[in-house]
Amino acid sequence: MSVTVSTTVNGDSVDFVCAPDETLLDALRGRLGLTGAKEGCGTGDCGACSVTLNGRLVCSCLVLAVEAEGQEIATVEGMAAGETLHPLQRAFIDHAALQCGICTPGILVAAKALLEKTPDPSDEEVRYWLAGNLCRCTGYDKIVRAVQAAAAEMRRA
């Protein structure tokens, strides 16, 4: 059995067909070729699959693809404006806030969601907001520095 789902993905209208038991993560990766979101655990513990649904941060491994019907999905692939990287993306590179990079898409999506809610977070707020995004390499602290640098740049803009 398959279901047609109509959504907006990174600003574009997208219809896709999926199975009713398929996760949003698998649909994004397998059906739409958006492989930026990763599966690190499948249980909502690691945050590598983070995307936003209508602006709300979710673990896409815990959302069924059919639940995205009529919703706006934002993934890491939509962060840069063409060739121009988002300030968070630039700051992560500049501050060495990524290493192997597999957790990075989820952390960037989560950090963007934080800054949209809280443009001037404390270090503590960043640490706790991103506590659900595991990095094993581990880039902690540098990640906080990068988010703060991007936040400062975005406040100036």
Binding site: E39, V76, E77, L85, F92, I93, A96
Partner: peptide, 21 residues
């Protein structure tokens, strides 16, 4: 120097094994 693979990794374009389909 900043890592050369940084732009691929922050845009989701870096291809890890399970990204192949």
């Amino acid at each position: 120097l900043s890592r050369r693979d940084g732009p691929l990794k922050v845009t989701g374009a870096a291809t890890f094994a399970a990204d192949n389909h």
